[in-house]
Design a protein around this nucleic acid. Structure first.
Lengths: 335, 335
DNA sequence: CTGTTAGCGCGTTCAT
DNA sequence: ATGAACGCGCTAACAG
């Protein structure tokens, strides 16, 4: 691999001059630029990023921790971050947490050790304590999809409760009174917040609420199918179901189809996330929009600003979900 | 940021000793290990990756170029690569090509400049020439989902023709004789190969084949819907449709539903890829499995081996697709 | 077992 | 406008 030294020799100039033309310094003669450019091309010179990072104390790299890249939810997130990072000339180092505290911790450590000055972290398994510690160490660290009061200005999150409230309220407005809830069994904030939104909506509308209307499962298709099956087994007079997310809704749909219960004719269903699959389900799924791209963009920009030690004008970083009406919810009719 | 020098001072040893305990060198006394470890902890020392990379001439980083991370197909690919990379202690630098030659080229250059010694590249827009040049420059560069004869041992690809042949043949075996094809309008190898597989299967079974049975669209849901609509407009007596991929199949499904044509009762449909959405479609989509995880693993391992300048035992790197039978294809019946 | 030292490739003074 | 020289943080001889 050719170095500046080689290029300098080839161009009959000093390494300083080479460095200048590489970095487009104004103080470089036309002649020098010509000669050096030619030499670089001839030798196939590539600046050594490590050496650069070492001397300039900056890797120009943004690190990102997601749950699992193969989930399109995280895919969208990465894409949005990539867009803003690329625009700013930053590279992307990526790691998966796979919902394990150990893995999340290791990945964050890794990203820090690799010298990422900007960090967008999606961590559900680490404690607030631990994340706060990381945040204090790395000025450019931003948390996405999580809110920790002590470092509120470093968090970009969603109002989960409101989302679930919105969904349940929509069912209620459609005349449904017996509404079940398919809940995640993962012990994270989102689970509690979304469940709370469902309960709150019932209360605010003077509808009875009972634990028997709630079933739990893994936050995926299988979990949703299982939960729906269990819900059906109870023989409750349900006419609508709110769910933790679109995957569970998909599972519920399967269970209902297997039991010859038509959706939405005999059962309305509403999801959460408005993920990729929502529009492919049958019927197309009415759901709650999780504006993850927008949030990811915001998080990335915030991270870059913070890493740059610039002032950041305070702005709301709690996003609010909105309803996406499709075909899986219709008004309740007694017949 | 604390450096080895700081740690050395704190522990009352030389920087060499610090380096030794960091790298678990056998020649380091218990006492030294104790002292240095304590000092490192006290100072919150983190080894500087750039300095390390500079001196060791290795960044321990694997680069990967995908089309678009937000597509779960690429998500699965990245995940598989991440798994093998992590296991080998490599980090992941990622870039998106977004189906643009310019973007693909820039990203590859970027990954190389960042010092990735291993590279897994998914490029559909760059010419074979250009990719060959990159491959010659970087020993650890491996192409995925593309086959270039001149660098066959650097390619991990799928037998697209066979996949499409398999799909079409399956329809034929189910008694279908009037089979349409929904084709991509992207000008890449895959398009031609899959279309060729469809035509070949018809020929081999002495079935008539005609351009009128083929419609084109973008390789996504909208494109599939459009193509299906156009196909319907021709009034052909089709009883089955093979498609370029699952997304187009999903679009076709929508178009058919809008036109009250029941699937599979009155029209059988088969997809390609066995992507995430296949099992969520209604009816669940019969399709062709694209073993992308397996291929990505293979590509990552190959890349690492090559980057390590080890011998690589020749092995088949053209994967063969298989049928995934679900509910969107049933035997043809005249009524 | 430990310390001293050179140098990885590059950006950046400071002279000239 | 240009070049010589230093140092970024670390590893790897080498000498002790």
């Amino acid at each position: 691999m050719a170095t500046v030294k080689d290029v300098a020799k080839e161009a009959n100039v000093s390494i300083a001059t080479v460095s200048r033309v590489i970095n487009h310094s104004p103080k470089a003669s036309k002649a020098a630029i010509q000669a050096v450019t030619a030499a670089m091309k001839k030798l196939g010179y590539r600046p050594n990023a490590a050496a650069r990072a070492l001397v300039s104390q900056s890797t120009q790299t943004m690190g990102i921790l997601v749950g699992d890249v193969s989930d399109p939810f995280f895919g969208s997130m990465v894409k949005a971050i990539d867009t803003v990072a690329t625009k700013q000339g930053k590279h992307l180092l990526i790691g998966n947490g796979y919902h394990s505290a150990k893995k999340e911790r290791e990945t964050i450590e890794l990203l820090i050790n690799q010298g990422c000055e900007a960090l967008v972290i999606h961590s559900k398994s680490l404690t607030g304590q631990e994340l706060i510690a990381f945040a204090e160490e790395i000025p450019g660290l931003v948390l996405i999809n999580r809110f920790i009061p002590e470092i509120a200005n470093r968090c970009v999150a969603l109002d989960n409760l409101k989302g679930s409230y919105l969904a349940t309220e929509y069912l209620i407005k459609n005349g449904h009174k017996q509404i079940g809830y398919i809940c995640s069994n993962h012990d994270i904030e989102d689970t509690e917040q979304r469940k709370a939104g469902y309960l709150q909506a019932l209360k605010d509308n003077n509808l009875p609420h009972s634990e028997s209307h709630i079933e739990y499962g893994a936050p995926d298709e299988e979990g949703g199918e299982l939960a729906m099956t269990n819900l059906l087994a109870k023989g409750l007079p349900l006419t609508a179901i709110a769910t933790y997310n679109d995957y569970m809704a998909a599972g519920a749909l399967s269970a209902l189809e297997d039991n010859n219960i038509a959706v939405p004719a005999h059962m309305s269903i509403i999801g959460f996330d408005n993920g990729l699959i929502a529009k492919y389900l049958h019927p197309k799924l009415t759901t709650v929009r999780y504006p993850i791209q927008m949030m990811a963009e915001k998080a990335a920009m915030l991270s870059l600003t913070l890493a740059n030690k610039e002032e950041q004008k305070a702005a709301t970083m709690i996003f609010v979900p909105t309803l996406v009406k499709r075909l899986s919810v219709i008004p309740f009719s007694a017949n």
